[in-house]
Design a protein around this nucleic acid. Sequence first.
DNA 1: TGAAATGTTGGGGCG
DNA 2: ACGCCCCAACATTTC
Length: 475
Amino acid sequence: MTSKITAFWFRQDLRISDNPGLFEASKNGNVLPIYIFDHDASAECKMGSASRWWLHHSLNALNQSLDGKLNIYAGSAKEVLLDLIKTNTIDAIYWNRCYEPWRIREDTEIKAELTQLGIDCKSFNGSLLWEPWEVTKKDNTHYKVYTPYYRNGCLQAKSPRTALPAPQNLHLIHDCNAKTIDELELLPSMPWFKKMEPCWQVGEASAQARLSTFLDNELMGYKEKRNYPAKPNVSRLSPHLHFGEISPNQVWHSAQAHGLIQGVENDLDCFSSELGWREFSYYLLYHFPDLPHKNFQSKFDHFPWHYNADNLKAWQCGQTGYPIVDAGMRELWQTGYMHNRVRMIVGSFLVKNLLHDWRHGEAWFWDCLVDADRASNSASWQWVAGSGADAAPYFRIFNPVLQGEKFDADGLYTRRFVPELRLVPNKFLFSPWKAPEPILKASGVVLGATYPKPIVTLEQSRDRALQAYHACKNV
DNA sequence: TGAAATGTTGGGGCG
DNA sequence: ACGCCCCAACATTTC
């Protein structure tokens, strides 16, 4: 064994198995495993509150896998790394690529400077099935529509790398100048996260367990049942994927293997395609770095949004008077997560019925979601708003009453998060303002007191949205 | 992965 | 028996 020391820089790949950068680093000899918390450096890379909570636990899980030898630092990544090579004998620094624009900028700089100083810098793909620059069209332009991107761009390209094993014989080095995870102070002083704790098991082992449970019990019927927020047939892998506790390659190939079971072919294709949407988001962000801030379709730059602080607040707090919307927003607040069907409903409601700029929704989700991810979050909000690539057409406006009746017919989901309506019969659960007074009384509901009256009417707000969209249609 | 408005069809009640 | 109307059910168009 040589005495070469390779620093492996963990970022959004908080796992040991199928970690290409770590795998290669381990071949060189000794490994100095490091994590740099650099998200407080600027507003652009600020991490949301729920994400910080997740990160705290994820780092602890990773540290445990590394026998307590994960070296923690805080501050600008470049400064930390430059400092690190001054005070330690380091021959190489490896990492897996990140794709946020600010990361790409910074990584490019870091690679150039460190290489000049004689450090062997290598980056790897640990987070995507297909690199954004590898999915190309013949005419050299970029895909703007999902289906051809996925079918012709991804599925026709080379099959995603199969998962690597965890490196054997990791020789880990500890730097005594490193901080502890607690010193990062990722947890807020107000323990609001207590209610989230029972909902999640953080870390690589839990991510693998979640994948197994999903594939064994919930993949069957996924295509249909994933639409019903009370059903368990969704993977809930998004936060694990975001922090890289599990790689998309591990998910992809495990799912493929399970998809051989007869009768789940369509479910497998549907699930794989959801991983495809994740790839598409990264692809869009890579080729359109302004995606988190700017409308992908610039005609939306002149959209007559109608900001109203009270309405935004009501939406955030789950007090809109529309039970399926309020259930979703409260699920988000309480658990750090929201079922995908309901994300579409609350998104449509904010952007169309309340006529709020999608960036307000993006910001709130960013702070509240444990799976907050720049690429997915901004691509999805632009999709909902109609300003994005391959977006939902502007006139597609969800009716929260019909959506509730259709996708939560027995009210299980809605009653869980809006318990003040639990005695309201199904017939009026999604439109309590239509319930006759005796029924409300028997249910213990006083509209405007125990549960809000609708903050807008569906008919008027729908018409207003259609007018507004019409106004900027072909600017 | 929408909803509402409008159009079409066909069965049954009824003069 | 026949034609007319009504309307539910389904299909198509429009936003």
